[in-house]
Design a protein around this nucleic acid. Structure first.
Lengths: 111, 111
DNA sequence: CAGAATCCACGTAGATACTG
DNA sequence: CAGTATCTACGTGGATTCTG
């Protein structure tokens, strides 16, 4: 990298959002899984993550409210609800990639 | 970006380290401050962050153990202890930069 | 199937007092 | 100055039960 993004109050606010995302136990895992799999039903997310229904619901709701995840309800019985990333959510790939690069640097430079 | 770093067990382990860093309330703030200021005494960190002694000590110890921060003790009375980032710690700048870029994208694309 | 509601367990932060 | 040692408070996750 090497360049710098200017810091405005609006950007600072979204950095807070990003902090709230990463401070959570499951939110990064949910995003990672959706980055890999694109679209998943509630039950699939639950099974693949090994997470509780309550906690999964709470965090999906938070991710939706913060425009990172899209929730699509199909009017069927039994109900079918699918989750996928918004464009903003998909942009998190670069953040995760930066993290992997850092981890790689760590491995090659740690004493 | 666009390229991908291969994922090894060692890299995965350091991603866990990075997660533990970001899940904490103060660790990212400590790193950010040291990225800006390079070297700071214990008391300066405490004052500028508005953090408790106990919590600051705990987290500096964790950061030191994980080779992100270097602790330098000067044999003086009263004691003087300075903290700065290791090379690994300084590499976190790219992660924070990726976060700022994401936040900027968010601001310009949110509905 | 996809939740909502309740109760409990645990980790981490805050406040305070003490010290080489 | 730069810590250590306690005790308390609170947020978040886990387990369980119930439902349209």
């Amino acid at each position: 990298m090497g360049f710098t993004v200017e810091m405005t109050p609006a950007i600072a606010e979204k950095l807070v959002t990003l902090n709230e995302l990463h401070r959570n136990r499951w939110r990064p895992d949910i995003v990672n899984l959706l980055l890999e799999t694109d679209t998943l039903r509630f039950g699939e997310l639950k099974k693949q993550l090994g997470i509780t229904q309550k906690v999964l619901t709470e965090n999906l709701k938070w991710l939706e409210e913060n425009q990172i995840v899209i929730r699509t309800v199909y009017p069927e019985v039994p109900p079918r609800v699918e989750y996928s990333l918004t464009e903003i959510g998909k942009e998190l790939r670069d953040v995760h990639e930066a993290m992997r690069i850092w981890a790689d640097y760590y491995v090659t430079h740690a004493k």
